[in-house]
Simulated assay, not measured.
Amino acid sequence: MELVVYLAGQIHDNWREEVVKKARDKNLPLKFVGPQTNHDRSDDIGEDVLGTQPGKYYRDDAASSINNFRTQVLMQKADVVIALFGDKYKQWNTAMDASTAIALNKPTIIVRPENLIHPLKELSNKANVTVETVDQAVEVLAYIYE
């Protein structure tokens, strides 16, 4: 049984590749999807589709509409959502995606370091599972197949 896993979280490092590699190393039948990880493409998509916008607000609004559409389609098709919170970047998109997954009743795994226990306590409480590492998240996925 192949599951679709939506990988929510910041797009500035290779954590997604790490999850995919670890899952493949365990021969887990998983397909991975997620947000647009090409930052420039994500920022430019509104103007690429709708043309030049009259200012920064409208440029961001146009891009957000299309990015949110993409996220909604992929997340609705996902069987599981992993939302990674890290220390290095602001995590607004991750929080939005995790909240959306929970509202859609998607089984959700939150990955967050120990120092974010307090600021993420309510979100962690709503998720199905909260772990501290990518390895632990992959172990949770592997347990499905035991």
Rank of each mutant, 00 (worst) to 15 (best):
V20D: 02
K22H: 02
A23W: 00
A23H: 02
A23D: 02
R24Q: 00
K26M: 02
K26W: 00
N27W: 02
N27G: 04
N27E: 06
N27P: 01
K31V: 14
F32S: 00
F32W: 03
P35S: 15
Q36I: 09
Q36A: 11
T37V: 13
N38Y: 11
N38G: 12
N38D: 15
H39P: 13
D40M: 13
D40F: 10
R41A: 15
S42T: 07
S42M: 11
D43K: 11
D44I: 03
L50R: 00
G51R: 01
T52Q: 14
T52V: 13
P54K: 09
P54G: 08
G55L: 07
G55R: 10
G55D: 12
K56S: 14
K56M: 13
Y57P: 06
Y58A: 11
Y58G: 06
Y58T: 05
R59N: 09
R59V: 10
D60N: 13
D60H: 13
D60T: 08
D61I: 10
A63H: 00
S65E: 12
S65F: 15
I66M: 05
N68C: 13
N68R: 13
F69T: 12
R70D: 09
R70N: 11
R70C: 07
R70G: 04
T71G: 04
V73C: 06
M75R: 04
Q76Y: 10
K77N: 15
K77S: 15
A78Q: 04
A78K: 05
V81W: 08
A83K: 01
A83N: 04
L84M: 09
G86F: 00
D87L: 06
K88N: 14
K90R: 12
Q91M: 10
W92D: 09
W92S: 07
W92I: 02
T94G: 00
A95H: 02
A95L: 07
D97S: 08
S99M: 12
I102E: 05
A103E: 15
L104W: 14
L104F: 14
N105G: 08
P107R: 02
T108Y: 02
T108P: 03
I109C: 06
I109V: 13
I109M: 08
I110S: 02
V111F: 05
V111M: 01
V111S: 00
P113N: 05
E114D: 13
L116C: 08
L116F: 01
L116A: 09
H118E: 15
H118W: 10
P119S: 03
